[in-house]
Simulated assay, not measured.
Amino acid sequence: FGGFTAPLVCDRVAVELLVLVAPMIPAPAEAPADYWAHTRYEEEERDRYDDAIALFYQDVPPELAAEALKRGRAQSEARMGEPSPLRAWPDVPTQVLICRDDRLFPTGFLRRVAQERLGIPPDEIDGGHTPALSRPHELVDRLEAYAAEQGLRTPTPMHRGALS
């Protein structure tokens, strides 16, 4: 649900670039519970998975996937029906990065939603829904490239050893 939070942060702090990774992309004032119907998610051709590892972590090393599940918490449903306070997408350069093997949000679905809601074509990388766990080096490379394209300097150099 980071896509529902990130644009709100842009109105509260100085942001030079917004990157949405494997995201939900909300419409202004949309309630999270309405996202699925509004984006026609159920019409999307996709396989169904009842197992969290098969859905979210299929390409994550098994021991890391098990640790992610162990540390995970259930998401609160308390405010899912409330409209988002987002009134308009922030005036911040935005990139959408989707994962070619994402089982939750298939590429065709996210390509369509990114185009319909933001008017931008998403970029793609290999991997499933959690590239920070399955492909951290590729994700960091892409994020650093986005920053460089905007003329931004990363605050501290990313070190490969820190991601291993």
Rank of each mutant, 00 (worst) to 15 (best):
P32T: 09
H38Y: 06
L110Y: 03
D34K: 07
D59R: 04
E149H: 05
E149F: 00
E144S: 04
V13A: 11
A33Q: 13
F105A: 07
L64W: 10
G119C: 10
L86N: 03
A65M: 02
P122R: 02
A14G: 10
T154A: 07
A6L: 13
P7S: 12
S164E: 15
D47N: 10
E82M: 11
P155L: 11
D11V: 02
Y41Q: 10
G119T: 10
D126W: 07
A22Q: 10
V19Y: 13
A27V: 10
Y35V: 09
P26F: 07
H137C: 08
S134M: 03
G108V: 04
Y35T: 06
W89K: 08
I120S: 05
L8P: 00
A22D: 14
P136C: 00
G108C: 04
P136Q: 01
G161R: 06
R135A: 13
R40L: 14
K70R: 15
T94S: 07
G119V: 09
D123C: 06
L55N: 09
L8I: 09
D34P: 04
A145P: 01
Y57S: 03
D59V: 11
G151N: 00
V13N: 00
F1L: 10
L64G: 08
G72T: 13
E82H: 06
I53V: 15
P122Y: 06
A37C: 08
Y41K: 04
A37P: 01
R12W: 09
A114M: 02
R103P: 00
A162P: 01
I125E: 03
P106C: 11
V9A: 15
P122A: 05
P85Q: 13
D59E: 12
F56V: 02
M24R: 04
A145T: 07
R46K: 15
A65N: 11
T5K: 02
A22L: 01
E116H: 01
A65C: 10
A33K: 09
R48V: 14
F56H: 12
E149L: 10
L17W: 11
F4D: 01
L64F: 07
E63T: 11
A66P: 11
E116A: 13
P93L: 07
A78H: 13
A68V: 12
F109Y: 15
E138W: 02
F109R: 00
A6G: 05
F56Q: 03
T130F: 02
I25Y: 06
G151F: 01
Y49C: 03
H38Q: 15
V113M: 04
L118K: 01
A33W: 04
R87Q: 15
G151W: 00
R71A: 14
Y35L: 14
Q75L: 13
P93C: 11
M80E: 12
L133D: 12
E16D: 15
Y146Q: 01
V96A: 07
D50Y: 03
L8T: 09
Y49F: 15
L163D: 01
C99L: 15
E149N: 09
F109E: 01
L69A: 03
